[in-house]
Design a protein around this nucleic acid. Structure first.
Lengths: 156, 156
DNA sequence: CTTCGTGCAAAAACTTTGCAAATTG
DNA sequence: CAATTTGCAAAGTTTTTGCACGAAG
């Protein structure tokens, strides 16, 4: 069987769009749009990786030295974003990592040797997931999938 | 597209087999087979669910009141089992859960409403994963996949 | 016997909470 | 203004570590 695979998602959501999405979520929950929340969203957007809460916190501190964000706010905002489905989480090496999910859904293939993470989507797999869920009586909301293996470079 | 789905794996590995597997892993790493390690493996085997470290610890305490296992040993053994690929982990509701993976590989579909977890395997998806990995230059070692949705009962 | 594993308690790491002050709508 | 959000520090949780003793090979 031959699988179609797509691996390019990076620049496909504009920051403006993301921001609007966020504001919509906030409004829907009756929450306020604050400078800190925007800085955190922007930090996640600006970075092309999966971050732990601590890494994100450090990033924000160095990018916005004056804005003096607290780690508690980072946690609170990450939960908020997670509930609002703008952020997804990933458990790698026993640590929880966050990334923006809003750009476009994708899965992960992770090299257990060097830690490299490639994002991909296989429309065929997506479709099968739908059909599995249906057979088991579920209405799908979301899914997460990680493949672990050794990448080409590490096999040399 | 129509997906084959299998959902029965429970009794398919015998405890004896599992134990042998464990002993092999231990031997390979030059580690010792101890009473505690066996109690922990057995606890995981005896239970048909995904447990947090704490839950497993409590279970062992009540099942083996005299054996007086420490939580530290539970953690140490779980990591060991995880490295040896006898146990896999799952992040649900922000908590890490462990289960024996040795019985047979499977994925999870999780009801976000009632928390019910159904285990399944779709051979078709497995095959596509192989082919995705190949296209991206990876040699697959393992994977994990969770589908989140609402189950039939909760949609009533 | 030598080495590794254990329990315990302490330490570290990670996450959440209470509260007074600042900020938002 | 009223009400929410924030930073801070303190309190919870969860996980790891150091060490003296016990157990395994």
């Amino acid at each position: 069987m031959e699988a179609r695979v797509e691996t390019e998602f990076r620049s496909d959501i504009e920051y403006k769009t993301l921001l609007d999405k966020f504001k919509t979520v906030l409004k829907k929950e009756g929450l306020r749009f604050t400078k800190q929340r925007e800085v955190i969203l922007n930090g996640l957007y600006s970075v092309d990786t999966h971050l732990t809460s601590e890494e994100l916190y450090q990033l924000l501190k160095s990018n916005n030295p004056k804005s003096n964000i607290g780690i508690a706010t980072v946690y609170r905002t990450l939960s908020l974003l997670e509930r609002g489905e703008l952020v997804t989480t990933l458990l790698t090496d026993n640590t929880k990592k966050y990334e923006l999910s809003a750009k476009e859904h994708h899965d992960h293939i992770i090299c257990t040797d060097c830690g490299k993470i490639i994002e991909f989507v296989s429309p065929d797999i997506e479709r099968l997931q739908e059909s599995v869920a249906e057979e088991l009586g579920f209405k799908i909301l979301d899914h997460s999938m990680q493949i672990y293996g050794i990448c080409k470079d590490c096999r040399k």
